[in-house]
C-alpha cells in the first residue's frame, strides 16, 4: 500500500495510484482530542503536533498540518493580542498597522526560522517530521503579499488603501509583505513543510477585477514566488479561482490548484487540462447539517467530476468545529471508496 506522500507525489506526476489523496483540514479539532481548550492547545507546538497525529489516526486522511491559526503570521510581526473562542478559530485582536507610519515602522524579521514567534511552529514541524518519517505530506499555510495586509490592518483599511491609494504607500507595504512571504516560505521549507498553501483571496476575481489582477496581483505573486514554486498550492481562501487558473499557470508556473467549493470541479479540470494537480474541495460549511448519506453522495459526485484524466485529489476548506465526526468519517471513507484506482 502506498504511503500518503507517495500517493500525493504519484498523483501529482500523473502516475497510477491506489486511490486519490484525501486532504482534510481538521485544525481546531485537535484540542478536543487532547482534552484542552483552544487557548491551551495552541500554546505549544507539541500539542498541535500530537493533535494532528491523533486526528489522522482517527479519520485516516492523507495530510498533516502545521497551521495553528491564521493570526500566527500577525504574531510573527508583532501582534500581541489574539482573541480565543470556545467554538471556532482564534482571531487577530489587534491590528498592528493602524496608520501609514506603522507601515514605515514595521520591521520584517531577518530569519523567521530562528524567530521566537516561530519556535512553537518549528517544534510542531519537528515532531510531525519525526513521527511521520516521510510518510505524510506536511502542510503549511502562508499568506500572499497582496492578502497579508488584510490580516495586519483589517480588510476595510486594506481595501481603502488598495482602491484609493496612495500607490507609493501601497507598494511600499506590499514590498514588505512580499519580503515576509519569501522569508516565511523559506523557513517553512527548512523546517520540513512539504505542501505550502499559498493563501491568496486577492488573487480571485470574486475579490478584485481582472485589471487589478493583471496590474497588481500577478506582479506581486511573481515576486513572492521568485524562490520557486515547489510544493506551492494556489488557494484563494474559498473564493473562486477557475477564471484565473490558466493565467496563474502561464505566468507563475504554480503546479497545484485547490479549488473553491463554489468552483465547478469539471470546469476546473478542463481549464487545468493536465498541466497541474487539481484539488476538488467539498463545501464543508454545509457538511455541518448534511447526513452521512448525503456526504457520501456529494463526495461520489465530486470524484466523478474530477477524477477523469487523473492528477486530482480531494480537499476541504475550513472544517468548522460543528461538523459532526460521523460526517468527517463518512467523507474520508467515501473518498477511499470512490477514489480508488486513480490514474
Amino acid at each position: 500500500m502506498m504511503t500518503p506522500l507517495q500517493r500525493l507525489v504519484s498523483t501529482a506526476q500523473g502516475l497510477p495510484t491506489d486511490r486519490i489523496p484525501a486532504f482534510c483540514n481538521v485544525i481546531d479539532q485537535g484540542a478536543a482530542e487532547l482534552g484542552l481548550s483552544l487557548r491551551e492547545y495552541y500554546s505549544r507546538g507539541e500539542y498541535v503536533a500530537e493533535g494532528q497525529l491523533r486526528l489522522q489516526k482517527k479519520y485516516g486522511h492523507d495530510n498533516l498540518w502545521s497551521l495553528f491559526y491564521v493570526g500566527k503570521e500577525a504574531e510573527l510581526l508583532g501582534c500581541r493580542h489574539i482573541i480565543y473562542a470556545d467554538n471556532g478559530p482564534p482571531n487577530v485582536g489587534e491590528m498592528i498597522v493602524k496608520n501609514p507610519a506603522d507601515i514605515d515602522r514595521l520591521q520584517i524579521p531577518d530569519d523567521i526560522l530562528t524567530h521566537a514567534g516561530f519556535a512553537e511552529i518549528r517544534s510542531c514541524l519537528d515532531i510531525l517530521g519525526r513521527e511521520s518519517a516521510g510518510r505524510f505530506p506536511i502542510c503549511a499555510y502562508i499568506t500572499s503579499s497582496v492578502t497579508l495586509p488584510a490580516v495586519l490592518m483589517g480588510m476595510e483599511k486594506w481595501f481603502d488603501l488598495l482602491m484609493n491609494g496612495p500607490v507609493e504607500l501601497r507598494d511600499a507595504w506590499l514590498e514588505k509583505c512580499s519580503d515576509f512571504f519569501r522569508k516565511e516560505v523559506a523557513a517553512y521549507r527548512r523546517a520540513g513543510a512539504t505542501v505550502l498553501i499559498y493563501a491568496n483571496p486577492f488573487g480571485s476575481l470574486d475579490f478584485i477585477s481582472q485589471k487589478f489582477f493583471d496590474d497588481v496581483t500577478i506582479p506581486w505573486m511573481k515576486r513572492d514566488l521568485e524562490g520557486g514554486t515547489d510544493g506551492i498550492v494556489y488557494y484563494c481562501g474559498g473564493a473562486r479561482m477557475n477564471p484565473v487558473i490558466d493565467q496563474v499557470i502561464n505566468e507563475t508556473g504554480i503546479g497545484t490548484f485547490y479549488l473553491s467549493p463554489l468552483d465547478s470541479v469539471a470546469e476546473g479540470k478542463r481549464i487545468v487540462n493536465g498541466r497541474a494537480l487539481c484539488g476538488g474541495v467539498i463545501n464543508d460549511i454545509q457538511l455541518i447539517d448534511w447526513t452521512p448519506a448525503r456526504v457520501r453522495a456529494e463526495v461520489r459526485q465530486m470524484l466523478a467530476d474530477g477524477m477523469p484524466g487523473g492528477r486530482f485529489f480531494f480537499g476541504t476548506i475550513v472544517m468548522p468545529l460543528a461538523v459532526p465526526p460521523d460526517n468527517i468519517r463518512a467523507m474520508i471513507d467515501a473518498v477511499k471508496e470512490f477514489g480508488a484506482g486513480n490514474g
Partner: peptide, 11 residues
C-alpha cells in the same frame, strides 16, 4: 462583479 467594486460602490 467583485468585492472591490461593491466596496467602492458603497463608499
Amino acid at each position: 462583479t467583485n468585492l472591490a467594486q461593491h466596496f467602492m460602490a458603497s463608499q
